[in-house]
């Protein structure tokens, strides 16, 4: 990318990685092709420090207040929130389905854990997504190597700890290659 990477301001607390916020919204019921998915996703902005993160986040709508079929994505700078990105194509994600009312708190806890490097899995984390839907909301965290079971187990255990979820919450791991196969059956 030709774009200049953001840097922490004077006296600010640097993050281990720079991140970019994205937003997407689509008409429900219609499976998005890769192209229209890329057209629907908008960059909000990038940050390099804790303070810069709060400047974005404090002005963003809470996921629980979004309507319709919307997603916030927070990915490391340079990684597109798409299965096809080089950082994601061998990867997968942990998915947690949430009943309505929990998304804002869970999303905040999830991204604070990611920005603060709480997962302890080296370079493996790619980003996180909150998806607002009609019946339920979904949060997910994406990592680079779906086949690395030690990493995916560690991510799962950290999620349980930082999200403080009810014990009966179901967590599901999905590889992106499976997600691509599934969408191809819907949108040939």
């Amino acid at each position: 990318s030709k774009k200049k990477m953001v840097v922490p301001g004077a006296g600010e607390h640097p993050l281990q990685y720079n991140y970019t916020f994205w937003y997407s919204r689509r008409t429900p019921g219609r499976p998005a092709s890769t192209q229209s998915y890329e057209q629907n996703i908008k960059q909000i902005g990038s940050f390099a420090s804790v303070e810069q993160f709060w400047r974005f986040y404090s002005h963003m709508i809470r996921p629980g207040d979004l309507t319709g079929h919307s997603d916030f994505h927070l990915f490391k700078e340079g990684i597109k929130p798409m299965w096809e990105d080089d950082a994601n194509k061998m990867g997968g994600k942990w998915i947690i389905r949430l009943r309505k009312g929990l998304a804002s708190r869970c999303w905040e806890n999830l991204i604070l854990a990611m920005l603060g490097e709480q997962f302890m899995v080296g370079e493996e984390i790619c980003g996180a997504v909150v998806s607002v839907r009609f019946q339920e909301d979904i949060i997910s965290i994406w990592n680079k190597t779906a086949s690395d079971q030690a990493t995916t187990a560690r991510i799962r255990d950290t999620l349980r700890r930082v999200l403080n979820l009810p014990p009966n919450t179901i967590m599901e791991y999905k590889t992106h290659t499976d997600s691509i196969k599934y969408w191809r059956t819907l949108a040939p």
Binding site: G9, H13, P14, V50, L112, A113, G116, E117, Q118, V162
Partner: peptide, 21 residues
Amino acid sequence: GTRIIYDRKFLLGCRSSPVAK
């Protein structure tokens, strides 16, 4: 190398610090 690790409480504390405004 060293990793920059912050817990939730620290990050929340930076939200209201003067430098964040």
